[in-house]
């Protein structure tokens, strides 16, 4: 097993062409886990990907190309992983900082395209669900809630969950 690869810092990369793979140590202080997930996912069509913990709280990303490859291709792939990690980490930060504007734009664009529900949508709506829970009696009419009750009338279970039990 080779422990280093030209162009990468010493100790960052483990390279094992015979077993068909390589791994990169990723500093957890620089890259959030969501960036590591995002970058690793980009490779699953070309590689078998495995994540692990490394020393010092770091992460390790293992890539093993699905098809046989040479050292140069593995180097290019690891370089691409590095670039994708940076891109995902930055994007995660942008998403946090600009969350409100991103959400507003997405909501406006999708809302504009979806429009209001039409009759077809209402037809497709399932009204057969059981009565929803209404502990405050909001769905009841004033008469139902406060009007004079007939002693013989059975109580609506959902409407008066906190009613006193009758003697």
């Amino acid at each position: 097993m080779s422990s280093s690869l030209d162009g990468f810092p010493e100790g960052q990369v483990q390279f094992d062409l015979e077993r068909g793979g390589a791994s990169v140590r990723v500093d957890a202080g620089l890259y959030p886990l969501e960036a590591i997930y995002g970058a690793a996912y980009v490779f699953i069509d070309r590689c078998f990907v495995l994540l692990d913990r490394a020393d010092g709280g770091a992460y390790r990303v293992w890539l093993s190309p699905k098809k046989a490859t040479d050292e140069q291709s593995v180097r290019a792939m690891l370089g691409e992983l590095g670039n994708e990690l940076l891109s995902c980490a930055w994007r995660a930060q942008i998403a946090k900082e600009s969350r409100s504007i991103i959400e507003a734009v997405t909501a406006r664009a999708l809302g504009g395209a979806r429009g209001a529900p039409g009759l077809d949508d209402l037809e497709a709506f399932d009204f057969s669900d059981e009565a929803f829970d209404d502990p405050l009696g909001i769905a009841m009419s004033w008469e139902e809630k406060y009007g004079k009750k007939k002693a013989e009338e059975p109580k609506a279970e959902a409407a008066e969950p906190d009613a006193e039990p009758k003697p």
């Binding site: 997930y37 995002g38 690793a40 996912y41 699953i44 078998f48 495995l50 994540l51 093993s64 699905k66």
Partner: peptide, 15 residues
């Protein structure tokens, strides 16, 4: 191949 695809599958579901 099976081991690799199983790993990818678990990663995909986790993400």
């Amino acid at each position: 191949r099976v081991a690799g695809e199983l790993g990818n599958y678990a990663l995909g579901l986790t993400i």
